[in-house]
Computed example of a mutant assay.
Amino acid sequence: MAKNENETYDSYPRDGFDNPPIGPVGVHRGARSVGARMMPYIVVLIIAALVGALAWGLFSGELTKAFGGGSQTADQSQTVQSANTDSASKNTSSDSSDSKTSSSDGDAANQSSNTDDANSSNTDSSDSQSTQDEQNANDSQNSSDESDQSSAQSQPNKASAVRVVNATGIAGYAASKASVLTGAGYTSVTAANPTGAALPDTTVVWYQNETDKATAEDVAKTLGLTDVQQASGLDVPVVVVLRN
């Protein structure tokens, strides 16, 4: 049969191979939809979320509560809370008792301290009063001694030794003056002549110490003399030197 050069694809009868699928086939498939492309990621995210929730439930105990362990846990929690409440109550009672005991001990200690302070204050006051009394007694004694000493100094001692030296050249002059002193109550009067020691130019009454001053003044008054001087190196308390 002669080939008709005008024949085309449509000139032949159609069969199963003449109805291919629309679009690329095999490795040349067309682009998928957005939902088809995102589906694997969505599945992975869902699986990861489920695994994380399961792990969290196991570690936190929520999964056990969800499957019947919640009641036992609640009972345990209530028991622990009750035990804690009882312990707190006991501690509060113990603290209150300790506080009362401490307060009682503190009051007793304060009372004892106040008593000790009062006793110490009384003792100190007594000691201070005793010291003050002793000091007053000493002052009074010292004042009395000073008064006695002053009185003794102001009073002539007629038992003191008195020497009358005759430097006039008149025989018996010293003895006559000594007799005047003896008549005035002096018990230790002697008459003597000069011994070569330096003699004053005028009649004078010498005394050695301040305690002898009153005696020297009384001797001068008894003899009618006025010149009374303190001198050193005397061998008797009072020396009367008679001059012309």
Results as ranks from 00 to 15, higher is better:
A2Q: 10
A2L: 07
N6V: 00
E7P: 02
D15R: 04
D15K: 05
D15T: 09
G16L: 09
F17C: 04
P21R: 11
V25Y: 10
G26H: 06
V27D: 14
V27P: 13
G30L: 07
G30V: 10
A31R: 14
S33R: 06
V34P: 00
G35Y: 10
A36T: 11
A36D: 12
I46L: 15
I46K: 00
A49F: 14
A49D: 04
G52W: 14
L54F: 13
W56A: 14
L58H: 08
F59A: 10
S60W: 01
E62C: 01
L63W: 12
T64I: 04
T64M: 05
K65H: 09
K65R: 13
F67P: 00
T73Y: 05
T79K: 07
T79P: 01
T79R: 03
V80I: 14
S82V: 03
A83T: 00
N84M: 09
S87K: 15
K90V: 13
S93G: 05
S96P: 01
D98K: 14
S99P: 00
T101F: 14
G106P: 00
D107L: 04
A109G: 04
A109C: 04
A109F: 04
N110F: 08
T115L: 08
D117M: 04
N119R: 08
S121T: 15
S121G: 09
T123V: 12
D124E: 15
S126I: 11
D127C: 06
S128Q: 10
T131A: 15
T131N: 05
N138K: 06
N138C: 00
D139M: 07
D139L: 05
S147N: 12
S150F: 01
Q153N: 15
S154T: 06
N157I: 03
K158H: 11
S160V: 10
V162S: 02
V165Q: 06
N166V: 13
T168A: 07
G169A: 07
A171F: 10
A174P: 06
A175Q: 14
K177N: 12
A178L: 05
S179N: 12
G185V: 08
Y186K: 07
T187H: 03
T187D: 11
S188H: 12
A192Q: 09
N193V: 13
T195K: 14
G196K: 09
A197P: 05
P200G: 02
V205W: 11
Q208H: 06
T211L: 06
D212Y: 03
K213F: 09
A214K: 07
A216V: 14
A220P: 08
K221M: 03
K221F: 00
K221E: 11
L225F: 13
L225G: 04
L225M: 14
Q229Y: 13
V241Q: 04
R243A: 06
